[in-house]
């Protein structure tokens, strides 16, 4: 299988001296959905700009669909679609006018354009809003319009720079649904940057984590999660005096037991089966259990592991966290 994007030792130092991209190498296979993750200022947008000919690299090289972005930017432009991080739809034009202009800029024939615009407006649920000025659109409508403009000319590689920024959970889910559909129908290669790791987890075949301009980890989401170890079960007994370490260590599947503020942190494989077994073991040892929680590793934890920083500290537990409160065990004991 050939590669849609090949990046070798890519470097970008801005005139001010900021090295935004610092020797990055990776490859995106044709038809793949590739996630590019990193915190604010990591160098995601700069990388996308380099790959889409908006910026000129100061070192290394990049091929998009086999074409060198520096040697032949014109051909690269013809083969890519790009949805920018910021809104670039023209406010003073209607949604339809925006799409018509995009079609003309990308040389989509008039008859094709008409048909595709009709289809896309329908798919993006913008039929009613098509005749309204974009300045009256909501954030979600704008993003859908920009996605439509990005795929109107059927690009081989579609670059999405934080396409769900500023959308509510429903809007995000909807947008990803469109992206998934596009991919299924046309086999378009997708290069997406995002802050939402759980979404990258669901959509992307492979991801790379970038921090301070360098790639700190890359692989399939499953591989990355494996790299930082398996599931974690946290068990808290009602009475913390007795040492449960030997009891818990004997539970099948438990790899490691750590004491942690009055409770125990069990690193294990297949946490689902460890939870009842550990509770059972405590029960047999006549120890009441206050709570048990199971945590599946998410990309958030992968990120924490590789960058030493939480991804979005202000947010609550990620969607893949499954916390099980098991108060009934305490009640059963009494």
């Amino acid at each position: 299988m050939s590669d849609a994007v090949v990046v070798e030792q890519l470097e970008k130092t801005f005139p001010g001296g900021v090295r935004a991209v610092d020797g990055v190498s990776f490859a995106v296979r044709e038809g793949e959905a590739f996630g590019f993750l990193g915190p604010n200022g990591a160098g995601k947008t700069t990388t996308v700009s380099l790959l889409t000919t908006l910026l000129r690299p100061t070192g290394g090289r990049a091929l998009v669909d086999g074409i060198d972005v520096v040697a032949d930017p014109g051909t690269v432009r013809r083969r890519i679609g790009l949805v920018f991080q910021e809104s670039t739809a023209e406010d003073e034009l209607t949604g339809r006018e925006n799409l018509e202009i995009s079609a003309a800029l990308y040389g989509v024939s008039r008859s094709d354009a008409q048909k595709r615009i009709r289809d896309l407006l329908e798919r993006m649920q913008l039929v009613e809003a098509a005749g309204r000025l974009v300045k009256t659109y909501s954030g979600g409508m704008r993003r859908r319009l920009e996605l439509a403009a990005g795929i109107l000319h059927r690009p081989k590689v579609l670059f999405l720079d934080e396409p769900t920024l500023g959308l509510d959970p429903q809007g995000r889910a909807g947008l990803w649904e469109y992206v998934r559909e596009i991919r299924k129908e046309s086999g378009t290669t997708i290069f997406v940057t995002t802050h939402y790791l759980d979404e990258a987890d669901q959509l992307c075949d492979r991801v790379a984590i970038i921090d301070h301009g360098k790639i700190v980890a890359a692989g399939t989401p499953a591989e990355l999660k494996e790299k930082i170890g398996g599931d974690v079960v946290t068990l808290v007994p009602t009475d913390g005096t007795a040492d449960l370490t030997p009891v818990l260590a004997r539970v099948p599947g438990v790899l490691q037991v750590q004491k942690q503020d009055g409770g125990y942190r069990l690193k294990c494989l297949r946490g689902e089966s460890v939870v009842p077994a550990a509770v059972e073991a405590c029960f047999t040892a006549h120890i009441a259990v206050a709570s048990v929680a199971l945590k599946k590793p998410s990309l958030d934890e992968v990120f924490l592991e590789f960058t030493g920083r939480a991804f979005r500290e202000d947010e609550g537990p990620s969607a893949t966290d499954t916390a099980l409160r098991m108060n009934q065990f305490r009640q059963r004991k009494r």
Binding site: T52, T53, G74, I80, F84, T88, L105
Partner: peptide, 9 residues
Amino acid sequence: YVKRTIVAP
């Protein structure tokens, strides 16, 4: 807005 035209072929 200008970027959108710059990135067009």
